[in-house]
Design a protein around this nucleic acid. Structure first.
Lengths: 193, 193
DNA sequence: GATGCATACTATCAGTTTGATATATAAATG
DNA sequence: CATTTATATATCAAACTGATAGTATGCATC
């Protein structure tokens, strides 16, 4: 067998912060906005994970920061990636099997649809469809945060999001009857591998 | 405005365990198998969350358990849902906006594709496609864990999984060139809302 | 002119979840 | 005979979530 990877670097919040910094200096606040606008849709992170991540990165010498005083506003801690940080990022990007996890209260709930009223089910479905529409609309307005926003990777990912959201909409619209009607209905969309 | 929900019950591991118990008594080990076979694909949970969840549910009187001795094997703690537990589950199922979250190291990594070699990118993509194939194959063998496995909800959710996995495969296959070729290529799949 | 809200910035904390590990026995696999 | 798999429990460090807190300015709204 091939030797196990010496020191596995996960694609976690720390690593994504490192990646953002390859595009230029930024504060924790800047990164939070970036997570909100784009990354957060497939890799959520709040202050509770960003600030500790930056603190750990700084402690390990993977980033440096300088405190920039501002007039009328709190000081900014502006972070920069170091050479050690770049090396660590490279390690993380060499993991050949990154995960793609879903945690869906929605699907878990639908498993218990037989314990719900039709009214409850319809409300949940309608809300989910509305949410998907908002998401698609948001993607159309494309608020890319990275300076190099037009890079192939982010285009691929945005297209991915658009495609998945549209697919979900279609599946839900065409199969929602299954959940509320008591007579036997089959899946309307059959899929070949 | 409508009064805020008195005591928000989240659709968390505790609640899913309650839901599983509406189908009959089960041990933590049984539930883990159920998470592994079906639920885990869209709502993962390991021993580290299942056992504490059951302990909390028992402490709050939402489930009861009896220890069943076995020959040659460790004792089983067999759990049953109580009336209070059923009421709690009903509360959780009345939440009209259950979440659907994605956490994708894969997409995060693809955002930094410009920092990777074509070889690295292709390996990641190939692995992801293989993973999706395994998932689709697994769904075709349908190891439903609930006695009432043929209920509409689980059928809807299984179809959902199949549809999403096939969509992902298609998107990745048709757009992977974007990531590795240096000349400008556009998305091959355009989607209307 | 006051009250509240949005923006800009930092940071912490309780509760949950993750993923690995520990313990113990038996059966099957190589 | 050694290893792995299955049956069952449980715990722990590290990470993450979502909310909250503090502090200062400006901008509406009442």
């Amino acid at each position: 067998m091939p030797a196990a990877l010496a020191d596995d670097v996960a694609m976690d919040v720390k690593t994504v912060c490192l990646g953002m910094l390859t595009d230029g200096p930024a504060s924790g606040y800047d990164m939070k906005k970036c997570f909100e606008s784009t990354f957060g849709h497939f890799f959520p992170a709040g202050y509770g994970s960003i600030y500790p991540a930056l603190a750990t990165l700084a402690r390990n010498g993977l980033v440096e920061f300088e405190e920039v005083p501002q007039e009328g506003k709190p000081d900014r801690k502006v972070y920069n990636i170091t050479d050690a940080g770049r090396a660590e990022l490279d390690k993380a990007l060499s993991n050949p099997t990154p995960t793609h996890k879903v945690r869906s209260e929605f699907l878990a709930m639908m498993c218990f649809a037989h314990l719900m009223t039709d009214e409850q089910i319809n409300e949940v479905i309608d809300n989910k469809l509305t949410e998907l529409d908002s998401f698609l609309k948001l993607l159309d307005e494309l608020p890319i945060c990275q300076a190099d926003g037009s890079n192939k990777g982010t285009q691929f990912v945005a297209g991915f999001g658009r495609f998945v959201a549209s697919s979900l909409k279609r599946y839900i619209n065409e199969n929602r009857d299954m959940l509320t009607q008591s007579d036997t209905k089959d899946l309307k969309i059959a899929v070949g591998n």
